[in-house]
Lab assay of single mutants.
Amino acid sequence: KRLSEREFDPDIHCGVIDLDTKKPCTRSLTCKTHSLTQRRAVQGRRKRFDVLLAEHKNKTR
Rank of each mutant, 00 (worst) to 15 (best):
A54D: 13
K32E: 12
E55S: 06
S4V: 09
S28N: 07
R6M: 14
L53V: 07
D9T: 06
H13T: 03
R40Q: 10
R48Q: 14
D50W: 02
K59I: 15
L52T: 03
Q38W: 02
I17V: 12
V51S: 14
F49Q: 03
A41K: 11
P10G: 07
L19E: 12
H34Y: 00
F8V: 09
D18S: 08
F49A: 03
V42L: 04
L3Q: 11
R61W: 15
Q43Y: 13
D18L: 10
K23L: 11
A41W: 04
K22M: 13
K23E: 07
K59D: 11
R40G: 06
D50M: 03
K59L: 15
T60Q: 12
S28W: 08
R27C: 12
K59M: 13
N58C: 09
S28V: 09
R2K: 15
V51K: 12
H34L: 00
R39P: 01
E7R: 11
L36K: 12
D11S: 13
L29K: 02
L29V: 05
L3I: 13
T33G: 09
D18E: 12
G44R: 04
H56Q: 09
H56S: 07
A41G: 10
S35C: 05
I12E: 09
D18R: 10
F49E: 03
H56T: 09
S35P: 10
K32R: 09
K47C: 10
C14L: 00
R45M: 01
F8N: 02
T37A: 14
C31P: 00
D11Y: 04
R2Y: 15
I12G: 05
T37Y: 05
S4M: 10
D18C: 14
T26F: 07
R2E: 15
R27M: 11
D11L: 06
A41Q: 08
Q43S: 13
T26K: 14
D9V: 06
C14A: 00
D11W: 03
T33C: 09
F8W: 07
R61Y: 10
K47Y: 07
R6C: 07
L53M: 07
R6D: 07
C31F: 00
R27I: 06
C25D: 01
Q43H: 04
C25V: 00
D9R: 07
K59N: 15
Q38F: 04
D9M: 09
K59F: 11
T33W: 10
D20M: 11
R61T: 15
F49C: 04
H13G: 01
L53Y: 07
T26Y: 07
L53P: 01
D50Y: 02
K23I: 09
E55D: 08
V51C: 07
L52R: 02
P24N: 05
G15F: 03
G44S: 05
P24I: 08
D9S: 15
R40H: 04
K23V: 09
S35L: 04
C25N: 03
R61K: 14
R2M: 15
H56L: 13
L52Y: 02
L19N: 12
L52G: 02
H34G: 00
F8R: 02
G44E: 04
R40I: 09
R48H: 15
L29D: 01
H34S: 00
K32Q: 06
T21K: 10
H34I: 00
V51N: 07
K22H: 10
R39Q: 11
S28E: 10
R27H: 11
F49P: 03
R45C: 01
D9Q: 14
D11Q: 14
T26A: 08
L19A: 13
K47N: 11
T21E: 12
E5Q: 12
R2C: 05
L19T: 14
R2S: 15
C25F: 02
Q38D: 13
L53I: 07
S35Q: 03
K47R: 11
E7F: 13
Q43L: 11
N58R: 10
R6V: 15
L52P: 02
Q38V: 03
T33P: 02
L19R: 11
K22E: 12
E7Q: 13
H34T: 00
H56W: 12
K57E: 14
E7H: 11
R46M: 11
E7I: 07
K47F: 08
R6S: 10
R6F: 11
D20Y: 07
R2V: 15
H13C: 06
S4I: 06
H34M: 00
T33S: 13
T26I: 14
D20R: 06
V42D: 02
R27W: 09
R61M: 15
F49W: 04
T37S: 13
Q43K: 13
Q38C: 08
H13W: 02
I12P: 01
G44K: 02
R48W: 07
T60M: 14
T26C: 11
A54I: 07
G44C: 03
D18P: 03
T26M: 10
H13N: 08
G44Y: 03
H34D: 00
G44P: 04
S28K: 09
Q38S: 10
T21M: 10
T30V: 10
F49Y: 05
E5P: 10
Q38T: 04
V51T: 10
L29I: 09
L53H: 04
V51P: 04
S35Y: 02
T60N: 12
S28T: 09
S4C: 08
R2F: 15
K59H: 08
S4Y: 08
Q43C: 11
D18N: 09
Q43N: 10
R40L: 06
R40M: 11
L3W: 03
A41Y: 05
L3E: 13
E5F: 10
L53K: 02
D11E: 13
D20A: 12
T26S: 09
S35W: 01
E55G: 05
R48M: 12
G15D: 01
Q43D: 08
R61Q: 15
D18Y: 05
R40E: 08
G44A: 05
C14P: 00
V42K: 02
S28G: 12
E55P: 03
Q38A: 15
R6T: 14
P24V: 07
D20P: 07
T60A: 11
T30M: 08
K22V: 11
K59S: 14
I12T: 14
D11R: 04
T21W: 06
H34Q: 00
R46P: 03
I12L: 12
V42T: 02
Q38G: 04
C14K: 00
R6I: 13
D50N: 04
A54V: 08
T26G: 08
T37D: 14
N58Y: 05
S4W: 03
E7G: 13
D50H: 03
D11K: 04
K32F: 05
E5S: 12
T33M: 13
T37I: 09
P10R: 05
G15Y: 03
I17S: 06
R6Y: 07
E7D: 11
R40C: 05
T26L: 13
T30S: 08
F49N: 03
C31N: 01
R61G: 15
T26E: 08
R45L: 01
T60K: 04
E5Y: 09
L36S: 05
T21D: 09
E5H: 11
K47P: 02
N58H: 09
P24W: 05
L53T: 04
R27S: 13
E5R: 06
V42W: 01
T60F: 02
K22S: 11
R6G: 15
K32S: 11
L19Q: 12
R39Y: 00
R39G: 01
I17R: 13
H13V: 04
N58G: 14
I17C: 08
R45E: 02
R46G: 12
S28D: 09
R45V: 01
D20S: 14
R45A: 02
V16K: 01
L36M: 13
D20T: 10
K57V: 15
I12M: 14
H34C: 02
Q43I: 06
H34P: 00
T60Y: 04
K22P: 07
L36A: 05
I17T: 14
P24Q: 08
D50Q: 02
T33Y: 06
T30Q: 09
T60L: 12
D20F: 06
R45G: 05
F49K: 04
D18Q: 15
L53G: 02
L53W: 05
R40T: 05
K22I: 10
L52I: 01
R39A: 02
R2T: 14
I12V: 10
T60S: 10
I12N: 14
L3P: 07
T30Y: 05
E55M: 05
S4Q: 14
N58T: 14
G44I: 02
H56I: 07
K22R: 13
T60H: 03
R48E: 15
C25I: 01
R46W: 04
R45S: 06
K59A: 15
L29G: 01
V42Q: 01
